[in-house]
Amino acid sequence: MPRTSYQDELATLRGEVGAMADLTLDRYWEAVEVLESGDPQQAQRIIDGDTELNDWYLDIERECIDLIALQQPLASDLRFVASSFKIVTDLERIGDLACNLAEYGRELGGTTDVDVEPIARLAGEMVEAAMAAYTTADADTARSVVVRDEQLDGQCKRASETIVRQLVTDGVGAEPIDQRLQRVSRLLVTIRDIERVGDHAVNIAARTQYMIENDDDLIY
C-alpha cells in the first residue's frame, strides 16, 4: 500500500487517542471511588496525575497538526484526524472533571446524602461507549450514547432535586449552617460535573459519527 509511513502515523494516532482515553477513564473511575470513600490520598493522586493527561493531550494535538500540515489527509482520513483533534480536547476536559470530582469527594468525606455512584457510572459508561465507537468505527454505538445522555440528564435532575428537597424539608439539623450549605453546594456541583462528563461523551460520539458517516447532525 502506498504512503506506508502516513498510514502508520494514522494508526499511531488512533492508538494514542485510545490510550489517552483509557488513562482518562482510569482517572475518572478512581474519582468515582473517591466520591464513595472520601479517601484524600487517592484524591491527591488523581489531581497530581492530571498533568500527565494535559501533556498527552498537547502531544496528540501536535501530532494532528503535523499530520494535517505534512500529510494533507483527505476524505475519511481528514475526518478521522479532525475528529481525533476534537476528541482529545473532550478527554482532557473529562480528566479535569475527574480532578474536580476527586476534590469534591475529599471535601465531602464521601457522599451519603444521595447515591451518586449509579449516575457517575452511567456517565463513565457513556464515555466508554463513545470511545468504543471511535476505536471500532461503530456509528450505531455512537448514536446510542445520545440516547443514554437523556437518561443521565434525567437522573442528574432528580438527584439535584432530592438534595434540595432534603435541605428544605429536613433543614440543617444539628450541623452548622455554613457546613451544611457547603455540603449541599458540593453535592450539587458534583452532579453537575457528572452531567458534564456525559456531555463530553456525547461530543465524542458526535465527532465519531461525523468521522464514520460524514454526518454532522450531532455536532450542530
Partner: peptide, 11 residues
C-alpha cells in the same frame, strides 16, 4: 476507489 486514490491507498 476515489476515496482510496485521494487518501493515497490507491496503487
Amino acid at each position: 476507489r476515489v476515496e482510496d486514490y485521494i487518501t493515497g491507498k490507491f496503487g
